[in-house]
């Protein structure tokens, strides 16, 4: 039997069907989490501005060599030049890192530009107030999400990849689909694809808890209560460095996540995360 070229086939009728995709607790915790992450990131950058250098080990201060630092070269005559340095590689970053403009448009030396810090002006005390209030909210919200996920089966049902999905062939296929920006349609779009599941699992069970644990390891009070925690990360300054790396990875995830939403159909995806209803297009059996 010869294959009929696709464009000569009988037109297939597709019916739009709304399925219930996200439980109420998932939707509510998702948006609270977004609020918390935004505030924590921006107030975290405010806090980091007080000493924009990262070290490895138990201690680290001005006289010790940082693994990463943001700064400004001020030669006197020429305007200061912002830089970021990783190990021995130095990059000029004037305008964004090290040197940027304040509210009056003047060039000032500060690690991050005013539009990414909370508050926008330099104030470590206020940055800490924002950070620690929303850290509690973030942890409580994550706890609610974990408890609900265990009770309602969300983790096993929606996030755990099936055996078939984890086969190398399926994974390669999914990577190829992502690279071609080809998204599943019809019944296949009902659940998450393997890369999506693995990414969500990594963010939910590794990066988000890691933020809390490395944050706690920076607290001198918690270090007395849980000394093993700071050992786990190889010292308080290492924990601070990991806190910064994990935050950067979460930010990277958010960019990819939002890009995927925009590519896959922003209105459908947004509605699903607000009302719970997600539209899939299935072949109409009654055509």
């Amino acid at each position: 039997m010869t294959e009929i070229p696709p464009d000569l086939r009988m037109p297939v009728h597709h019916r739009r069907r709304l399925i219930y995709r996200h439980a109420l607790v998932t939707r509510v915790t998702h948006w609270i989490n977004l609020l918390c992450l935004a505030v924590l990131l921006m107030s975290g950058l405010q806090i980091f501005m007080a000493h924009p250098a990262l070290y490895w080990g138990q201690f680290g201060a001005d006289a010790d060599r940082p693994a990463f630092e943001i700064g400004a070269d001020d030669s006197g005559d020429s305007p200061p030049a912002g830089f970021a340095r990783i190990g021995s590689s130095k990059f000029e970053t004037t305008g964004i890192l090290g040197v940027s403009r304040n509210a009056s448009g003047e060039t000032v030396e500060r690690a991050f530009p005013r539009w990414v810090t909370l508050p926008s002006w330099r104030n470590l005390a206020l940055g800490r107030r924002w950070h620690f209030f929303f850290a509690w909210l973030f942890a409580a919200n994550l706890l609610v999400y974990f408890a609900a996920g265990l009770v309602n089966g969300h983790f096993w049902r929606d996030l755990l990849p099936s055996k078939q999905q984890l086969r190398p062939r399926a994974l390669f296929h999914d990577i190829a689909d992502h690279l071609r920006l080809k998204f599943p349609r019809g019944e296949a779009s009902r659940g998450y694809n393997p890369l999506q599941k693995l990414t969500y699992l990594c963010v939910i069970f590794v990066l988000l808890p890691l933020m809390i644990l490395t944050g706690l390891a920076m607290s001198p009070g918690m270090d007395a209560i849980l000394p093993w925690l700071v050992d786990l990360f190889g010292g308080r300054q290492s924990a601070r460095t990991i806190h910064f790396i994990a935050a950067s990875l979460i930010l990277l995830f958010v960019f990819v996540h939002v890009a995927m939403v925009l590519l896959a159909g922003p209105l459908n995806e947004l509605r699903a995360m607000i009302t719970g209803r997600f539209a899939i297009f299935v072949e109409d059996d009654h055509a």
């Binding site: 000493h51 138990q58 201690f59 201060a61 920076m218 001198p220 308080r236």
Partner: peptide
């Protein structure tokens, strides 16, 4: 002991 400054650095 380790001294932790509110700014973020530590010294022992």
């Amino acid at each position: 002991t380790r001294h932790d400054c509110v700014e973020g650095w530590s010294a022992i």
